[in-house]
Structure formats: structure tokens, C-alpha cells
Simulated assay, not measured.
Amino acid sequence: MGLVTIAGMAESGDIPMREPLAYFLTWTTYGTWLPGDQRGWVEKPGRFREPNRNMEVANREQMTEPEFVLTSPQRALVELTIRDHCKFRQWSMHAVNCRTNHVHVVVTATGYSPDDVMKQFKSWCTRRLKEHASKPEAPARGPTKNPANSLPLTLRQKFWTRGGSKRIIFDQEGMENAITYTLDGQ
């Protein structure tokens, strides 16, 4: 079945033999975990790469906007947006956890690919972040107090990195592991 990273889960590039139980999705905010990063990085599913300072510097120089770090109110808005989108689509959201530089979601979205689900989440979260920033009462209007966010959100074009981790969960143990990691492993 390909690389299985947590019991009952496989990377989305693998060909499933049966209907998945859920998807374990993770994506990072723009510029916060570049190829070459000191924590290491994933080139492709199952292909972990060691830190490479020169590569990280080269990638940082190619960025077209400053890195994006989510504030506490923005994190709450992202989680609410994901919950609302799951209700609208009638998907079962099992767990969500938005951190300052990444998001984890465990979701069952029958009939949708993990790529489509992640794209929808990113798109709606971007839309809501921009809408919230454009409201006069929103504290995030204009440049935020976080120096990493030096662009007003209404002008920012890039909130998320391309792609992300899309693990397919096939059994209850994999589901429990993903939920536990999402809620308690941060």
C-alpha cells in the first residue's frame, strides 16, 4: 500500500484498496517552514530532508511576501471557518487545531479527494481572514502587532504554503491516533 506513517494511515499518493475512513490534513502558513528549514523538511510524501541553511536562505529570498504567522483571534477564525465549511458540506469533522504556523484537520469527506478538501479549507480560510481584516471593528485591520505580518491582511495574497500533508486513514486506530495528535500532540 506504500508508506504508512501512523498505524492505519497512508500518504495520499498511495492507491487505496478500500474507501478511506477519513483524511488527516496538515498545511503550514506562508514562509514559516521553507525547504532547507533547520527542523528538516519534506520534499515529497515519505521523503524527509535534512536542514540545509543555504537552501533555506535561497528560498527565503524568493518569497514575494513576508511570512505569515496567525494571531490568536485569527487561529480561532480559521478553526470556526473549517467547522462551518464541514457543516455546509455535510462532512464529519473529527478534530481541528490551528497553530500559529500550521493547521491540522481530521475529516471524513466522502466523495472528495484529500486535495479538494484541503483546497476548499485553505480557500475559505483565506476568504474569511480577509473579510475579518476589512471590518472596521476587527483588531487585525492594517499591519498586525505581529512583526512577521507586515502586510495588512486585506492586501496579502499568500496565507498558506502550496500543498500540505494529506494522509488517508483506513481504520479506527489510525483515526484515534490522528485525533489524539491533532488535539493533544501540539
Rank of each mutant, 00 (worst) to 15 (best):
V96T: 09
T71H: 05
E50K: 13
R53H: 12
F88N: 09
F68E: 00
R53G: 08
L80F: 03
R60G: 02
S72Q: 09
Q90C: 07
F68P: 01
N54A: 14
Q62K: 15
T71L: 15
T71D: 04
P51A: 05
R75N: 01
P51Q: 06
V57C: 04
P66N: 05
F48T: 13
P73S: 12
N54K: 11
W91M: 08
I82V: 14
R53P: 08
N59E: 15
V96I: 14
H85F: 11
C86P: 12
R99V: 06
V69F: 07
F48Y: 14
M63D: 08
W91Y: 11
S72Y: 14
W91C: 09
F68G: 02
A76T: 09
F68L: 10
S92I: 13
V78M: 04
R49C: 15
T64F: 01
T64I: 12
E56Y: 05
F68R: 03
R60Y: 09
R60Q: 11
P73R: 07
M93K: 02
P73G: 07
A95V: 13
E56V: 01
M55D: 14
A58P: 02
I82D: 01
E56Q: 12
R47P: 03
C86D: 03
M55P: 02
R49M: 15
R75Y: 04
W91N: 09
E79T: 08
E79W: 00
R47K: 07
E56H: 09
R60W: 10
T64L: 11
T64Q: 10
M63I: 06
R49F: 13
H85W: 09
N52K: 11
Q62T: 06
P73Q: 11
M93I: 14
I82N: 04
V57P: 00
W91K: 10
T71P: 03
P66S: 07
G46A: 09
M63P: 06
Q62F: 01
A58W: 08
V57S: 04
N97Y: 08
R49Y: 13
T81L: 06
L77C: 13
P51V: 04
M63S: 12
N97D: 08
D84G: 08
D84Y: 02
F48K: 14
R47T: 07
A76V: 01
N97K: 14
L70N: 07
V57L: 09
R75V: 04
V78E: 02
R53S: 11
L80Q: 10
L70S: 02
V96C: 11
N97Q: 12
P51I: 04
C98S: 10
R60F: 08
I82R: 03
